[in-house]
């Protein structure tokens, strides 16, 4: 009977972790869809990458028990933990470098009926940047 209780505990812990992880992943995705501009969307995507992914992987590790599978899953968790902030920083840095302006100030989501109006107080940016050129066809060098 002891083994049965242990299995039950394993199942419950794993179910809780998986449910939490999946909840964060879905909420992060909804955030990516709902947020008004690129920089704010990045925050929502980061949420998926950190807590969502780690919780799902932790739930799977609990399921796999002590085995090679769980070691590999832990390796994936470690790799995601290392690479996801670097990738996020690279994406945001590139967008900033290309002159994509963040929307600053207060923001409220429009109600269902009204037209989506975005009001943002444009603060002067902390650094002087060359204006993004209008799209020109690039030539192959």
């Amino acid at each position: 009977m002891d083994g049965g209780v242990l299995h039950m505990l394993q199942f419950v812990i794993s179910a809780l972790l998986l449910a939490g992880g999946v909840f964060f992943v879905i909420a992060g995705t909804v955030g990516v869809l709902r947020f008004p501009d690129f920089y704010t969307r990045m925050h929502a995507a980061g949420m998926t990458d950190t807590l969502g992914a780690e919780l799902v992987l932790l739930g799977l590790i609990v399921q796999a028990g002590f085995s090679q599978t769980s070691l590999k899953l832990a390796l994936i968790a470690f790799l995601l933990f290392l690479t996801s902030p670097t990738a996020a920083h690279a994406v945001v840095g590139a967008a900033h470098n290309a002159g994509l302006k963040p929307m600053l100030g207060k923001y409220r989501a429009p109600a269902l009926g009204e037209a989506p109006e975005v009001k943002s107080e444009v603060k002067p940016k902390p650094k002087s940047k060359s204006k993004p050129k209008p799209r020109t066809k690039k030539k192959a060098t």
Partner: peptide
């Protein structure tokens, strides 16, 4: 109504 206030 997600109230956010993006800042740098």
């Amino acid at each position: 109504d997600m109230e956010i206030s993006p800042t740098t």
